[in-house]
Nucleic acid binder design. Structure first.
Length: 473
RNA sequence: GGCCCGUUCGUCUAUCGGUUAGGACACCAGGUUUUCAACCUGGGAAGAGGGGUUCAACUCCCCUACGGGCUGCCA
C-alpha cells in the first residue's frame, strides 16, 4: 500500500480517436472529484501512441467536452506520443535489469503458434523461445522487448473498488513493451507515464482490470511505488447493453447541445454508479465533500434519461439567474441558435423567476420564456386563436380599459382580473384562456400575471389591442 | 475455451449478520389549480436460482444461470 500521506494525483487518459464519450466523461469526473476534494492534482494525458487512429480534432473535442463539464486539469496536457523516447529508455532499463528480454519471434510465428494451439483446442499463452536464449544465438533481425514476467505464483491487485483480485501468473504472457519499430506499447507507456507524472490514484474503466496485473508487473520490474487502483464499471444503455450509438447520445457534447446544464450533468453522472447514503441532488461543492472511492458500486449502471432530466431541472431551478443566463447564451452558441438581442436578454432576465423552476433543459427554458422573447405582432397558434371568440374579445377590451391606470403589481392586477371575470359571470379560467392567447399566442404559458408583469403595461395593452383587431377566421 | 468482474423495486441506489429492506427517478390514484408544468398526499414495486456457515443472511462461502470485460507488435 502506498503511503497515505502522499498528496493525491489523479489523471484522465483518453485516446483521441473520437469525441469525449459520456462514460469517459464520468471517469474524468470521478478522477477530478477525488483529486479536487482532497486538495490534490488532476492531470490530463492524451494516449495518442496509435498514430493511425489519433487525430488532433479528437483531442480538441475531448478538451471541449471536459471544459464544458467544468473539469479543469492541472498543468499542460501530456502527449503520450511525445514521450516515446522515455518509454524506450525504460524498456532498455528493464533489459539491463534482466526484467525484460529481446524476443525475435516474428508475428507470423506467433500467429502460427496461436493457430496451432487453437486447433488442438487449447488456448495457451504464447511462450517466447527467446526468453532464456543465449545472446550468442540472437539472429540479425528486428526484435521486440518483452517483459520477463513471473511464470508461477500469483499477482494480486488491491483494488479500491473491486477489492482483492488475484491472477495466476501462468495465465499472463510476457507482454511486449517495445515494438520491433522501437515504439512503446500501451502497456509500457501507461505505467511509465503514470509513474513519471506522480499519479497516486488510477481511477479508470474496469475493462482495464485485467491489464492492472500486467501493469503491476512492470511497476515491480522497475521497483516503482504502486498506485492505488480503482476500476469502475462501465456505463450501459437503458437496455443494459454496452452504451452505443443506437441508444442515442453517447458524446458529452451532444448533451450540451440538447440543453442540459453542466451542473446537472455533473450531479447525475456523479450519482450514476456512486452513492452516499440518500444524497441525490447536490452542488459540486457538496459532491467534492462527499465523494469517495468507497461509494462506487461494482455493477454497471444504466443511463436513465428521465432521471437525468429531473436532476437537470432541479439544477436549473436552483441556479442564480445571472449564471443561468450566462450558460444559456453559451448553449445558444453551441447549438447554432441565434444570439440574444439586448432587449431579449433584458426580458429574459426579468422572466427568469417564473420560468426556471419548470424547465429541465435550456431548450425548455427558452420555450417557457417564449412569451417574453417575441415581439408584435405575435404569431397566433390556431389552438390559442380558438379562444378569441367575439365574446372573449369584448371581455378583453373591457379588461384593457381597467388596466390603463392600474399599478403594475400582482396585488393590484389580481382584483382587476377577478372582478372582470365576476362581472362577466364567468370563472377565472374563461378569462385567463383568451388573455393567455392574446399575450402569448399559445395555450401553455406561465401564469397570466407573471406574463403581464414581465412584459409590462404598454406591451400588455398593445398585445390585447392586437388580439381585438385580429381578423376572425 | 481460459481468466477476471458483476447480479437489491422498471431505473439509480441505501443496508456493511438481527430493519415492517429505506430514499430518488419513473409509474398509478387523489388533491390544488387560469393553461402546461410545478406542488401536496397516498399507492403498487426488489434481494437471479440452489446449496451451505450461523441462534440469525440481502449481507460470509460454494455451485449454477445470466450479463460484462480481457485473452493484439489497439488503447
Amino acid at each position: 500500500m502506498a503511503a497515505p500521506e502522499r498528496p493525491v494525483v489523479t489523471r484522465f487518459a483518453p485516446s483521441p480517436t473520437g469525441f469525449l464519450h459520456i462514460g469517459g466523461g464520468r471517469t474524468a469526473l470521478f478522477n477530478w472529484l477525488y483529486a479536487r476534494g482532497r486538495g490534490g492534482k488532476f492531470l490530463l494525458r492524451i494516449e495518442d501512441t496509435d498514430r493511425e487512429r489519433s487525430t488532433p480534432e479528437a483531442t480538441a473535442a475531448i478538451l471541449r467536452g471536459l471544459t464544458w463539464l467544468g473539469l479543469d486539469w492541472d498543468g499542460e496536457v501530456v502527449s503520450q506520443f511525445e514521450r516515446r523516447e522515455r518509454h524506450a529508455e525504460v524498456a532498455h532499463q528493464m533489459l539491463a535489469r534482466g526484467t525484460a528480454y529481446k524476443c525475435f519471434s516474428t508475428q507470423e510465428q506467433i500467429a502460427a503458434f496461436r493457430a496451432e494451439a487453437e486447433a488442438r483446442g487449447s488456448y495457451a499463452v504464447f511462450q517466447s523461445p527467446w526468453r532464456d536464449a543465449d545472446p550468442a544465438t540472437y539472429p540479425n533481425r528486428p526484435y521486440v522487448i518483452r517483459m520477463r514476467a513471473p511464470k508461477s505464483g500469483e499477482t494480486v491487485i488491491e483494488d479500491a473498488v473491486q477489492g482483492t483480485v488475484r491472477f495466476k501468473n501462468d495465465q499472463l504472457d510476457d507482454v511486449i513493451c517495445l515494438r520491433s519499430d522501437g515504439t512503446p506499447t500501451y502497456m509500457l507507456a501507461v505505467v511509465v507515464d503514470d509513474h513519471d507524472m506522480g499519479v497516486t490514484h488510477i481511477i479508470r474503466g474496469d475493462d482495464h482490470l485485467n491489464n492492472a496485473a500486467r501493469h503491476k508487473m512492470i511497476y515491480d520490474a522497475m521497483d516503482w511505488e504502486l498506485p492505488i487502483w480503482a476500476h469502475i464499471p462501465l456505463i450501459h444503455g437503458p437496455d443494459g447493453k454496452k452504451l452505443s450509438k443506437r441508444h442515442g447520445a453517447t458524446g458529452v457534447e451532444e448533451y450540451q447541445v440538447m440543453g442540459y446544464p453542466a451542473a446537472g450533468m455533473r450531479n447525475y453522472l456523479t450519482r450514476l454508479g456512486w452513492a452516499h447514503l440518500d444524497a441525490e441532488i447536490f452542488t459540486t461543492a457538496e459532491a467534492l465533500q462527499m465523494f469517495d472511492l468507497s461509494g462506487i458500486g461494482r455493477a454497471p449502471a444504466r443511463l436513465d434519461f428521465k432521471k437525468l432530466e429531473n436532476t437537470c431541472g432541479q439544477h436549473i431551478a436552483m441556479t442564480a439567474d445571472a449564471a443561468l443566463l450566462h450558460e444559456l447564451e453559451a448553449f445558444l452558441a453551441v447549438s447554432s441558435r441565434p444570439a440574444l438581442t439586448e432587449t431579449q436578454r433584458d426580458l429574459l432576465t426579468r422572466a427568469m423567476y417564473c420560468v426556471k423552476d419548470r424547465a429541465k433543459t435550456f431548450i425548455e427554458l427558452l420555450d417557457k420564456a417564449h412569451f417574453a422573447m417575441i415581439s408584435r405582432p405575435i404569431r397566433m397558434e390556431a389552438a390559442a386563436e380558438a379562444f378569441l371568440d367575439p365574446v372573449s374579445r369584448g371581455m378583453l377590451q373591457q379588461l384593457t380599459l381597467q388596466l390603463q391606470n392600474a399599478d403594475w403589481t400582482k396585488s393590484e392586477l389580481e382584483p382587476i382580473l377577478t372582478s372582470t371575470a365576476a362581472e362577466a359571470g364567468i370563472g377565472f379560467g374563461k378569462l385567463a384562456s383568451p388573455l393567455r392567447a392574446a399575450l402569448a399566442g399559445r395555450t401553455a404559458t406561465p401564469s397570466v400575471y407573471d406574463m403581464m408583469l414581465v412584459i409590462g403595461r404598454d406591451e400588455t395593452i398593445a398585445r390585447l389591442a392586437d388580439a381585438a383587431l385580429q381578423p376572425l377566421r
